[in-house]
Amino acid sequence: MPRATIRNHIRRLRFEADEMTQQALADRVGCTRQTIIVLEQGRYVPSLALALRIARTFGRTVEQVFELVEEP
């Protein structure tokens, strides 16, 4: 099976959403600001529930926020 990583566009979407702060996003989705920081930097892969909450906050689908990148 090819190795896969999950990238996300949270940082870009925050700026598109009136430059929402990391703390504001954390408060809206129910996590700590540290979790948002490590999520944006690709160091943490969220649960499906958190991914759905983040996508819903931006009014997007999960696929528009998170992206599966398969490496050869």
Binding site: G30, C31, T32, T35, P46, L50
Partner: peptide, 8 residues
């Protein structure tokens, strides 16, 4: 209470 998140 919302102090802990899923990563914690």
């Amino acid at each position: 209470a919302g102090v802990l998140d899923e990563r914690d």
